[in-house]
Structure formats: structure tokens, C-alpha cells
């Protein structure tokens, strides 16, 4: 009897470690590519069947900053992302308020319409956007590229903000006015603090979306609006994998940082699985 119990116990603990093996394999699969990029970007003379690069060097980073104007490209990327975030937030605040707090006949239908740009492949409407922008001379301007990004960023922001506004408790607002606060005071001291986290998380997510956006940038960029993802793609085409790796590392760090920073505050998984009943 005790033998059987010990056997079962062993099986139980083994099962638990099997679960960890599974999780470990999963984490390896996710993080390993980045590790390879890091090694590649610091490695020198890493040829043949070697596990690790024989020599470490900063050469590729230096080279990457020499052949490409990294500050310029970073500036482009940041300017475009900032413009896109600003426009997306300005659009999403009123529209999100309407979706979250007002009665709209056929709300579901309107919402799925707003979210349609996330369903159709970006390259399909990117084509149309590019043709329109050529006509309006918006190609190769920061504003134009940001406007193209808006097609993807705005639905995100509207989705997140409408959920935030919907979560505002009517009773809290009533309590505030019962206690004698003017509408303006209610807005400033009750509504704003309540919705600020939602707005911030929507801004962060639209920022990373725009920062990482590749397809729509590729359709609308020019020589003055090369962004980091596009530059990485060009570098890949040039075939210097070490240099591309060095650029990728510079590109990827801010995104990962944002993910690790906001994970406590906003439950980022909510934003990915965002829309139900597609």
C-alpha cells in the first residue's frame, strides 16, 4: 500500500516537472530567436558549426550607426509614432465615449465596422492608401505615414477607450454631483483620474503598434521617412545579417520594455484578445 502511494507520489511530482519541461520548451521557443540575434550582433567570425561566436565585438553596432543614420531614422520613427498616437487618441476619445456611454442603435454593427481594418489584410487597403497619398503628395511626409498608421491604430484606441468609458460607474459621478461638485469639477477630479489609466494604456499600445508597423510604412515611406522596421528590412536585403541583427536589437528593446513596464497596470492580454464575436 505504501509502495503504491509512493509510486503515485513519484508520478505526481514527475507530472509536475513534466509541466515545467513543457513550459520551459515553450519559453525557449519564444526567447531563443532573440538570443540568437543578440549573439549574432555581438559575434565575430561566427562561421561553421560553432555554438557560440569565437570572439565578441561591438563592431557591428558601430558599423550600423556608421552606414545608416540611426539618430535620423529613430527620430523619424518617433515623430511618426507620436503623430499617430496623438491623432488616434484624439479620434478615440469622442468616439470611444459614444460607444461606451451612449445609446447607439445597432452598436455591435457599428463597432464591427470600426474594427474592419483589423480584419482585412493591411496590404489590401495599403494599396489604396498609397495611391491616394501619391495624388495628395502625402508620400514621404511624416504626417502621411502617421496617417496611414492611423488606419490600424485608431480601431485599437477606440476599442480600448470604449471599454474604459463603459467601466465608469454612474453612481460615482452622481455621488460627486450630489456632494455639490460642479460638472467641471466632477470632470477634472473624478472622471479624469478614472479614465487616465485607460487612455495611457491605449496610447502605449498605439505607440508600439505604430513603432512596429511595417506593411503600411512600406507602402507610404520615402527617403526622408525611413523608419526603423523599414531600415531593418532594407538591411536584410543587403545581406549583412550581423548589421541587421545589431539594428534589430536597437529596434526591439523599447517594445519589450513597454511590455514589461505595463504588465502590472493594464493586463495587456485584454488588448490582444480585444474583440469578441468577430
Amino acid at each position: 500500500m505504501t509502495l503504491l502511494r509512493r509510486y503515485l507520489q513519484a508520478l505526481w511530482s514527475a507530472r509536475k516537472s513534466l509541466v515545467y519541461v513543457f513550459l520551459l520548451c515553450f519559453a525557449l521557443l519564444i526567447y531563443m530567436p532573440f538570443l540568437m540575434i543578440v549573439l549574432k550582433s555581438f559575434g565575430k567570425g561566427w562561421f561553421g558549426r560553432l555554438w557560440l561566436p569565437p570572439e565578441l565585438t561591438m563592431h557591428w553596432y558601430k558599423f550600423a550607426t556608421e552606414v545608416t543614420n540611426i539618430p535620423e531614422i529613430t527620430k523619424n520613427t518617433l515623430v511618426i509614432a507620436t503623430l499617430a498616437v496623438t491623432m488616434a487618441t484624439l479620434i478615440a476619445i469622442p468616439t470611444g465615449w459614444a460607444f461606451g456611454r451612449r445609446r447607439i442603435p445597432g452598436k455591435e454593427l457599428w463597432m464591427s465596422m470600426i474594427l474592419l481594418p483589423r480584419m482585412i489584410p493591411p496590404i489590401a487597403y495599403g494599396l489604396g492608401v498609397a495611391q491616394i497619398f501619391y495624388r495628395l503628395h502625402l508620400i514621404d511626409t511624416h504626417f502621411g505615414v502617421a496617417l496611414a498608421h492611423l488606419a490600424i491604430c485608431a480601431p485599437y484606441a477606440i476599442l480600448v477607450l470604449s471599454a474604459t468609458f463603459e467601466g465608469l460607474d454612474e453612481r460615482v459621478l452622481e455621488a460627486s454631483s450630489v456632494c455639490g461638485a460642479s460638472p467641471w469639477r466632477t470632470f477634472l477630479h473624478v472622471i479624469v483620474p478614472l479614465i487616465l489609466p485607460g487612455i495611457l494604456s491605449s496610447m502605449l499600445f498605439t505607440f508600439t503598434t505604430s513603432y512596429n508597423e511595417f506593411t503600411l510604412t512600406l507602402m507610404t515611406y520615402g527617403k526622408d521617412t525611413v523608419t526603423l522596421p523599414v531600415r531593418t528590412y532594407i538591411a536584410l536585403g543587403e545581406g549583412y545579417w550581423e548589421v541587421t541583427s545589431a539594428m534589430s536589437i536597437m529596434l526591439v528593446i523599447p517594445s519589450l520594455l513597454v511590455l514589461f513596464l505595463i504588465q502590472r497596470q493594464v493586463a495587456p492580454e485584454k488588448l490582444l484578445g480585444g474583440f469578441k464575436g468577430v
Binding site: F214, P229, S248, L251, S255, L256
Partner: peptide, 15 residues
């Protein structure tokens, strides 16, 4: 689980 969604697809592919 969320990492592949916040990095550019390009970089994931490179890695």
C-alpha cells in the same frame, strides 16, 4: 506568451 505580438514580425523572422 505576449512577446511575439509586441515585437515587429520582421525581427521575429530574423531570429
Amino acid at each position: 506568451m505576449l512577446v511575439p505580438r509586441v515585437v515587429p514580425g520582421l525581427i521575429g523572422a530574423l531570429g
